[in-house]
Design a protein around this nucleic acid. Sequence first.
DNA 1: GGGAATCTGCGTATGCTTTACGCAGATTTG
DNA 2: CAAATCTGCGTAAAGCATACGCAGATTCCC
Lengths: 254, 254
Amino acid sequence: MGDDLGDGAASGLPPVLELAWGLRERPTKGPKRGLTLDRIVQAAVTVARAEGMPAVSMGRVAKELGSSPMSLYRYVSTKDDLLTLMLDTAYGQPDPPPAEPGGWRAELAHWASGQRIALYANPWALHIPLSGPPATPNQIVWLEAGLAALRDTWLSEQQKLSTILLISGFVRNEALLSTDIMAAAERAGITADEAMGSYSTALARLIDPRRFPSVYAALTSGALDDDDGLEGEFGFGLERILDGIAVLIDTRSH
Amino acid sequence: MGDDLGDGAASGLPPVLELAWGLRERPTKGPKRGLTLDRIVQAAVTVARAEGMPAVSMGRVAKELGSSPMSLYRYVSTKDDLLTLMLDTAYGQPDPPPAEPGGWRAELAHWASGQRIALYANPWALHIPLSGPPATPNQIVWLEAGLAALRDTWLSEQQKLSTILLISGFVRNEALLSTDIMAAAERAGITADEAMGSYSTALARLIDPRRFPSVYAALTSGALDDDDGLEGEFGFGLERILDGIAVLIDTRSH
DNA sequence: GGGAATCTGCGTATGCTTTACGCAGATTTG
DNA sequence: CAAATCTGCGTAAAGCATACGCAGATTCCC
């Protein structure tokens, strides 16, 4: 007994969260540990960055560390745990908001851009299936920053939470779509804009204008091969959401 | 040669799309085929519904059909193709919009609810990693319906597309989070509301109120154990987004 | 100091997974 | 009636997560 990573602190939290928050104190007996959780996660991130998420296997990560697959299970009880930890490091910590006060709107826009930058810098993280609401340390730091941006509004706590969840979901979605397209384009040896263009022309040839008049109109309007294709998508969505929040806040405030 | 599913129509489309749209005409030689693509996809959906997405393997699907794993590769060139096809059937076709005219807003709300219903009815589909912009038949039908809802607005084609992408991304995100929480709760033998409650209390105990004052305030405000937890999240996000679109449309229209 | 306790890394093994290759038989074309 | 061409599918390769248990290291307690 004793060689499992089941709960030990009885905190009511999933084991991986106790790991992530460093709650699990190690007993003093036994040999020194040869690895650390951090090093394992770091190695996994290295593999993901260099060879993509599908290459991240326990064996591959162990090799990166000069260790053996089963050793990792002394630190992590499941591969999913490792993925959760990787996701947390991908987000990292948010930049502090700009010094000059811009109100909740500027602050949230800054926050969203920061998340987008983090995800673009770690596109592999978008291929980690998320399992449950945010709860790892960096995710909480981000959540804190997001909620803080709404501190001067009259929104209820629930509304603030929903707002932050809405925005971060949007950022994640947009980043996933964009980086996927860019990756597919790179595989085909073209630029992302070219990929969008050929996507739309191929689709336009495929569909029946009578059955899908609106889609046909959209595709042939050249909407998709505009300059600011991918970048513009983010800006558009974010502005729309912020406008929607603004409506709510302005209604509430008097 | 000839026993591959590489492109044959030279349409410039990925092979799986030619399959989905039924473009690939079969030659007349050789023995009759024992299966159809539809039956395979249907069998895969059956497995996913009954045993979850992780159970969907080529072997398991083949067994469902009384066939052998390798036979499926005569119909599908990769497991990912099968997943793409499964996703398409999960979405199905949208209901027609309600007869009485409610304007773009009511129509889009109806559209979003329809997508949510489809996803809630097929939660396994949320665990299919999406690869690229929508392009399969049912996805295009949905896209057509969404764009059509905006027919009377002054939005540019690009803005219409962005709007629809924004909303369907939101619906997908919300459905994923909700069904994940419900599934986790069911595994633990409690209700989703109880799960949210214990999540928030556990987290509230975990975090330092001084480092995360806003998160702490949100968690202890009881925002998360409200009645309309999951349902309310969808309504909130959708209203915010629609409000944001309305701002854009109203600004444009004069 | 000397067990006893307890931890460590990790070898081995199980039962999965996708899918490349090629063969035997069915069917249609000339 | 051959030649061509397709069919289902057996076999096998390569890889995956991870359960189990062992040998050795370290520390605690007497």
